[in-house]
């Protein structure tokens, strides 16, 4: 897995709240037996019309969304099905982070294991990001900070903190694995002896 420490990107915005994993990756694409190519199916029912043509005004299809690595989405992103195909699709499409006010638990867990950072921000920051699609942000995983360098003071709502650095929560372990580009199975396998002792104790 690619190591992530810090990157800059413009944002693309999907303002709907409660975007579920059926929208992110519809069920009919789940008959795959690999992880490859899921980006083509990302938001398929929103991105393509019934003839399979891209819908021009869907935010991801607009020219300015080209190359964006940060998705700003409405509240409670990733609810519903546990399908890991959702973060696979987002990562394959080119996203490295999703910003929302809240994430569904299973989606968040799946994302952290696939190099996709779920960034939780407060309501004013979230609203500002929704209102300013395409703004360039910096994600600093090491410092757990989201930086909004493009913000001009006059465009800020009063309740927004003056600093341009916004801390976001991420647990130490997931952060370490993302920064080192390692998966978590190796860590679990190191506990084989403890697992054996647990099994014997219960037998």
């Amino acid at each position: 897995m690619e190591k992530i420490t810090r990157f800059r990107s413009r944002t693309v915005v999907l303002p709907q709240s409660d975007i579920d994993t059926d929208q992110i990756l519809p069920a009919r694409f789940l008959t795959t037996t690999t992880r490859a190519g899921m980006g083509d199916a990302l938001f398929a029912d929103w991105r393509y019309d019934e003839h399979g043509r891209l819908i021009g005004d869907f935010p991801l299809n607009r020219p300015e969304a080209e190359g964006c690595q940060v998705l700003v989405a409405g509240n409670n992103f990733g609810c519903g099905s546990s399908r890991e195909h959702a973060p696979w699709g987002l990562v394959d499409y080119g996203f490295k982070a999703v910003i929302s006010t809240a994430f569904a638990d299973i989606f968040r867990n799946n994302s952290l294991k696939n190099g996709l950072i779920p960034i939780i921000v407060d309501q004013p920051t979230h609203q500002w990001l929704l209102d300013h699609p395409g703004v360039e942000v910096e994600v600093d995983l090491e410092q757990r900070q989201l930086r909004l360098p493009g913000r001009s003071p006059e465009s800020l709502p009063e309740s927004l903190p003056e600093t341009e650095m916004i801390e976001f929560p991420i647990d130490n372990f997931s952060r370490y694995c993302l920064m080192e580009g390692i998966d978590q199975l190796g860590y679990l396998l190191k506990h084989s002896d403890a697992i054996s002792r647990f099994e014997q104790h219960r037998a």
Binding site: S82, R83, E84, P87, I106, N109, N110, K113, N114, D183, Q184, L185, L188, L189, H191, S192, I195, E199
Partner: peptide, 14 residues
Amino acid sequence: IGTTEVGHVLATQC
């Protein structure tokens, strides 16, 4: 759980 975690449980039961 997601598929990565399915792999974790298959391999380690944890």
